[in-house]
Simulated scan of single mutants.
Amino acid sequence: MPLFRFTRKGGLSRGPRPHSPLPWIALIALIVGLIALAFAWLAGWIGRDRPTAQGFTDTIEATGPAHPGFRRAHSKGVCVSGWFEPTPQGAALSRAQVFHQERVPVLGRLSIGGGDPHGADAQARVRSIALQLVSDNGQEWRMAMNSFPFFAVPSPEAFLEQTQAQLPDPSTGKPDPAKMAAVLQKYPSARAFQQWAKTAPWTTSWANTQFNSVNSFWFTAADGTRQAVRWSWEPQAAVEVLDETARAGAGLDHLADEFATRLASGPVRWNLVVTLAGPGDVVEDPSTPWPAGRPRVQAGVLSLAHMQPQAGGPCNDLNFDPLILPDGISGSDDAVLAARSAVYSHSFNRRERETARGEAGGAAGVSK
């Protein structure tokens, strides 16, 4: 049967009916709507029941006084620089260029936990090291490591709960102990972390502190073999303990002053010790330690030779995103690791805006 269509003059004409544009318009509208929805979701404008980088940063900020221009976490620190020298054992584990050249330049930052850029060094339970290694092929390995051996909670959602429990109660100006007690009750790893904080020795220096990746990563060898790993910087300096009396009497900048004195005698070194996951080890949960008997490989030596104040220092405007990795090293599917990367980026951009608007007023840092 022939098809007919109306002509512009109102008559009938034999021929095919033209395609209607409506389906295409609907499809385009659907695509645009989905893009807008995805953007709003990532920005945190919708889906408020899930953690977002903006929500995390806002919550961390709300736990204490504002310090524009400084990192919201690990606010107080110093810039350091030196070099990394790999071992053949490290080269066998990963094809990353950092393990296949004689020496790799290092820029980094030593810091203490907490959001107070004027806090007392000796009173900070957590210490941190953040490093950037740049190999001859231009690829970078950035890491942000801590003195605790495992993460307190297993997921971003749990970490947000823990941070929210630290928010000051408007009626008292202090966190509600019942809220933190609820977090400890809900997460056994949080109780284990609290026990670590109470019993682990307080060492006298950054130099004799061990720093741990906590999150898991994958090393890929030259032949394509993949191995799940965690790594630590284990100090070559002898471990000395700072007892409670000494901590109480230590100066505000105890760690920085001690490290400067130590550097005057030569570089400070740590061994890079890589722990290899065994069958059944949990790779995606940073709150679950691996068994103590897992194989360990010394993959290189870090030497730090110079220190500068972070105000105006070369580490000041560097985002130590732990997912900036070279070929041969990749992140695991650990959701906490992905959340750290996202929050560091959001926080970094926020600090940059604060500094650009002149709000920092001499502040010494931006986000990790």
Rank of each mutant, 00 (worst) to 15 (best):
H306P: 00
L110R: 01
L22N: 13
C315A: 15
T52W: 00
R353A: 12
A228K: 04
I46W: 08
E102Y: 02
N349E: 13
G114N: 10
A277Y: 02
A339Y: 02
G362H: 12
T203I: 04
A130T: 08
A260S: 15
D281H: 12
G300W: 01
Q210K: 03
S341D: 07
V104K: 04
N137C: 08
F348Y: 14
L184A: 14
I329R: 00
P201K: 03
G33M: 08
G33W: 04
Q123M: 11
P156Y: 01
L252R: 12
P326M: 12
E140M: 07
P291S: 08
S189K: 04
G77M: 01
D285N: 10
G361Q: 12
G47Y: 05
L160H: 05
T203L: 03
P267N: 15
F84G: 02
A190I: 07
A356L: 06
T87M: 03
G108M: 10
M143G: 09
H346Y: 10
W290I: 03
S189H: 07
G114S: 08
V274H: 00
G313F: 05
I112C: 02
G278C: 08
V336Y: 03
V153K: 01
A342G: 06
A339F: 02
A158F: 00
L160V: 07
K9S: 09
L325C: 15
V214R: 00
A299P: 03
G47Q: 03
Y187W: 13
N271P: 01
G278F: 08
S111Y: 04
P68F: 04
W83T: 11
P201M: 08
G313I: 01
F56M: 08
T288Y: 03
Q54V: 09
I324N: 13
L12E: 15
A246R: 09
A264Y: 02
C79S: 14
N316V: 10
Q164A: 15
S232P: 01
M145Y: 05
V241F: 01
A43Q: 13
W45A: 15
Q227S: 13
E140R: 09
S341F: 06
T220I: 11
S205Y: 02
D327I: 12
S111D: 13
T203R: 04
L304R: 04
M145Q: 11
E157V: 09
R340Y: 10
L263V: 12
F219A: 10
P86A: 05
Q310W: 02
I129W: 02
N319F: 03
W24Q: 14
G300N: 13
S265G: 08
H19K: 09
L131D: 00
V297I: 14
R8A: 13
G90A: 07
A342I: 05
F56C: 01
V282G: 10
P309V: 07
R230C: 00
Q236E: 15
C315Q: 02
L337C: 08
G224C: 12
A43W: 14
K186M: 15
V274G: 01
F217H: 00
A292K: 13
T7K: 06
R269C: 12
G280K: 11
L255F: 12
H19P: 11
A130Y: 00
T63S: 07
I25Y: 13
Q123V: 04
G251C: 09
L131H: 05
